[in-house]
Design a protein around this nucleic acid. Structure first.
Length: 510
DNA sequence: TGGAGCTCCAGTCGCGAAAC
DNA sequence: GTTTCGCGACTGGAGCTCCA
């Protein structure tokens, strides 16, 4: 026997989801449940006549993926159907409870016995936890020997992440300064200049900060939501450029064979564009590899921002897992929850602010409707709606066209394929010049920002950027040095070429 | 049939919305 | 205005589905 519960269309938006869920939950008779959510829950959980489901029906939920409208099939075997029929007729269930009952049947996982998995139990526990947080905060001052490990002391690794009293004032300053910087950045609308890409200036300011935030939040390898969002934007744009369009410039010519009629300045511009494209492609490939499927499947608009706790826990979870290898995920979460309660409020505020700041950056990045043409000076701007619609059209076209090529299931292959689309960077003097040219643009933009903001945070943040810039200058300098005939090309071109590609990824302004 | 991709699960906190 | 609840975020693995 097969019961089919069909939905007309896939709930794509939160509102649709909610409506669909409400339709599933909505009882036959609406009046009793209209008292309110709380009452409805109470009637569900506290009803003495509610039949206890010890062995839920074996339910298979199939989702048809080949059509736009997805339907859900609920299947029950004949044997199970018999069991269902043999069961004594339960006493009448209140209408309000029926709605919830239907919901539970529909989503309950059949054959897993998880004593804690009851939603009600979880919520009760959650509720209790919330109360205990307040109590813990009140008692924290007297419990200055809160422990994490068995020795009774906070683990040294974690102490690195917990601010001491001496550090708190500096942290406060950082928060205030960063807030000022954020406000300033929000107010400041970059002025377009001929020949300068708006996108260049945006990325020169934001990407280093984003990388910094990612480093703060998750260490070097962890995928952080914010980073993915940033990079997927870049990825989309690269795909857009690579797939083509009327306004897309052709791929740069091989570096070793410049057009004879080009002036040095023109060649330099081409090189710079090539470096930009290369960096974007590398980024796109990199994050295509790291991006989670779950994140991919969700619309950016629907994604909820990661909270301060999320950022903090994503970083600390690694440490906890490293220190306690045998711990299950749930145990690690418990420890993280305990630790989160123990860290100072100031530090929590810092993580909260980092979350907010990251969201602001991403929003600004998303709100940027600028489109850059390779090899041209034109910047095209427009209303957000218009740009968004155009982007959606392009993505639709890309999706259609990309069906001609089978997707690479192996991410490594995907990355290699993406990298193969761009010519390898050459290591001639003009390439070094192009890198220096971009570096100069980036530093100029940074200088303007610092001068405009005059904040301490901007200055200190720029120092690390300058250090990165110095590092990024090494290979171009080595390239130039390698031109000296007496050296006989001591450094292999392949090495230099690979390093150029890496620098293109990290280089500010790309 | 094997591999790749997708979904769900665990426990926790934060946020937004609804209820009171 | 306060309280309560649902949902989403974090990660890694297990299990399921789909496709060649």
């Amino acid at each position: 026997m097969t019961n089919v519960v069909k939905t007309d269309s896939t709930p794509t938006s939160p509102v649709q989801k909610k409506m669909r869920k409400k339709s599933l939950q909505s009882p036959v008779s609406p009046s009793p449940i209209k008292k309110g959510r709380k009452n409805a829950r109470q009637s569900y959980s506290q009803s003495p006549t509610y039949p206890e489901v010890k062995a839920p029906l074996k339910i298979k939920i199939r989702r048809k993926t080949d059509t736009k409208s997805k339907s859900f099939e609920v299947e029950t075997s004949d044997e199970e159907q018999e069991k269902e029929e043999v069961q004594p007729e339960p006493e009448p269930v209140p209408e309000a409870a029926r709605g919830s009952l239907k919901m539970k049947f529909f989503f309950k996982k059949p054959d897993k016995e998880t004593p804690k998995s009851s939603t009600k139990a979880k919520k009760k526990k959650h509720k209790h936890k919330r109360v205990s947080v307040t109590d813990i905060k009140k008692r924290r001052s007297s419990e200055n020997t809160e422990t994490f490990n068995q020795s009774g002391n906070l683990d040294p690794e974690f102490e690195e992440d917990v601010l001491t009293d001496n550090q708190i004032p500096a942290a406060e300053e950082e928060i205030v300064a960063s807030e000022e910087e954020s406000v300033l950045e929000q107010k400041e609308e970059p002025v377009m200049e001929a020949g300068k890409s708006k996108e260049l200036r945006v990325t020169s300011e934001e990407i280093p900060v984003a990388v910094e935030e990612v480093a703060i939040a998750s260490g070097e390898e962890t995928v952080v939501d914010g980073e993915d969002v940033v990079s997927w934007d870049a990825a989309e744009e690269v795909v857009e450029e690579e797939v083509g369009g009327d306004d897309v410039a052709p791929s740069p010519l091989p570096m070793s064979e410049p057009e004879p009629e080009l002036t040095t300045e023109q060649s330099l511009a081409m090189k710079a564009n090539h470096v930009r494209a290369m960096a974007k492609s590398v980024k796109a490939s990199h994050f295509k590899k790291k991006g989670t499927k779950k994140a991919d499947s969700k619309s950016e608009d629907k994604k909820r921002k990661a909270s301060g706790y999320n950022l903090w826990s994503s970083k600390m979870r690694k440490q906890v897992a490293t220190q306690f290898p045998g711990l299950q995920f749930g145990d690690v979460s418990k420890k993280l929850g305990d630790l989160w309660k123990k860290i100072p409020e100031k530090e929590k505020q810092m993580w909260k602010f980092r979350s907010v700041k990251m969201v602001n950056q991403l929003e600004r990045l998303h709100s940027s409707t600028t489109k850059r043409k390779l090899g041209s000076k034109m910047i095209e701007t427009g209303p957000k709606k218009k740009a968004k619609a155009a982007m959606q059209q392009k993505l639709a076209r890309i999706n259609t066209e990309s069906q001609e090529f089978p997707p690479h299931k192996n991410p490594e292959q995907t990355m290699k394929r993406e990298l193969a689309k761009i010519p390898p960077p050459s290591v001639e003097a003009i390439d070094a010049a192009a890198h220096f040219h971009l570096l100069g643009e980036a530093l100029l933009a940074i200088g303007k920002t610092v001068r405009a903001s005059r904040s301490v945070a901007s200055t200190t943040g720029t120092l690390s950027l300058l250090l990165d810039s110095m590092v990024c200058s090494f290979v171009p300098l080595l390239t130039l040095t390698n031109q000296v005939p007496e050296l006989n090309g001591a450094l292999p071109d392949e090495l230099m070429s690979d390093t150029f590609a890496n620098i293109s990824y990290y280089m500010p302004g790309l």
